[in-house]
Amino acid sequence: MRGWLITNAFLHTHKFTEIHLWLTEAAKKLGVELIIKTNAEVLVLLDSNSTNVESKNSHERPDFILFWDKDVRLAKYLEIKGFSVFNSSQAIAACDDKSLTHLYLQSAGIKMPRTIVAPMTFSNIGYTNLDFLDCVVRELGYPIVIKECFGSFGQQVYLAGNRQELIDCVTDIGAKPMLFQEFIQNSKGRDLRLQVVGNQVVATMYRYSENGDFRANVSNGGKMKPYEPDQKQIELALRCCKIMGLDFAGVDLLFGKNQEPIVCEVNSNAHFKNIFECTGINVADSILAYIIKRICIGKR
């Protein structure tokens, strides 16, 4: 069996290349050749006369594509060409945009922090007035969490404790899509990351901050320890992935007033080095085993 691992041609950091290596090694252990292809090598060719990608070399056509990038146009193109793509283009797009994630989950009644999506503006105009912030404050109160809709590792997440901080934050973000959320005080500086593959939670870690940061992300200085999720947490994570159409994901949960789980974010291509170091579980092995099982079932 042969697969492609689609990566981004322009993102070169150890954090990403290490994950790519773990995925190819996991495939090798299962007797599968997983070939790395960048989104600059496999281009979107919109031509009504074209047939399939690599049609001139059909023997090189992969049995599946593990799409470890956010180039959703390419992912959609590969699906149109008949490839089995994991995760799907729609699932990746819905997770990449945090506002879409919340809309998907809201429609299914998933418990999340109360959220307001900022009105869309244009990059050459920006916000000519900030009157809508009055409604944001009235509905959510302070402190207010501000998130850029596109961001990773907690680096585009901010906290405003008063109106001036809110205005400064919105002004700094500019015309980029953003949303506002109520601050879950009981979960300040702590959350859960549940790694889901298929219909299973394969690993979970508790993340916590001891430096006063309201975010628990390890990338921001947070710490971690293994965690045994309860049935409610497991069921919520699995339900989120089903709603979003995800084959695998990292689901982040907050703690409500009575410790009830509240969904913070769902990550389609969640990095799993930290959870490996925390739990000893290599999520790459589960992802490849799941994909191979799906492909084999489809060939029967």
Rank of each mutant, 00 (worst) to 15 (best):
C241L: 13
R215A: 14
N199E: 08
T204W: 00
R215L: 13
M244A: 10
I184V: 15
R207Q: 04
S219T: 14
F214D: 10
Y206V: 00
M205W: 05
V218R: 10
G221E: 04
Y208S: 02
V197W: 01
G222E: 03
D247H: 15
I234T: 05
D191A: 09
D191I: 00
E235P: 13
A216L: 07
E228T: 01
M244L: 15
M224G: 08
R239A: 15
K223V: 11
L246Y: 04
M205F: 13
V196R: 07
K232F: 07
V197E: 02
Q231Y: 11
L238M: 02
E210L: 14
P229K: 01
N220V: 12
R207G: 08
K225W: 00
G222A: 09
V196G: 10
G189F: 07
G245V: 14
K188C: 15
N186Y: 09
M224P: 01
Q233M: 02
R193A: 08
A203W: 00
G222R: 01
Y208E: 02
Q200F: 12
L246M: 11
N217P: 06
I184E: 02
V196H: 10
N220G: 14
G250N: 03
G221F: 10
K225N: 03
Q200G: 06
G245N: 15
T204G: 03
N186S: 15
I184Y: 12
T204C: 07
E210W: 04
A237G: 14
L238I: 04
N186W: 05
R215F: 14
E235H: 12
G221I: 13
N220E: 09
G222W: 03
G221P: 12
G245Q: 09
C241S: 12
N211C: 07
D230K: 08
A216G: 03
R207P: 11
Q233L: 06
V201Q: 00
K225L: 10
G212T: 01
V218K: 13
D230I: 12
V202T: 02
Y208H: 04
K188T: 14
M205H: 12
L236S: 05
I184Q: 09
K232P: 14
K242Y: 08
D230W: 05
V202F: 05
E210K: 09
V196E: 11
K225S: 07
L236Y: 00
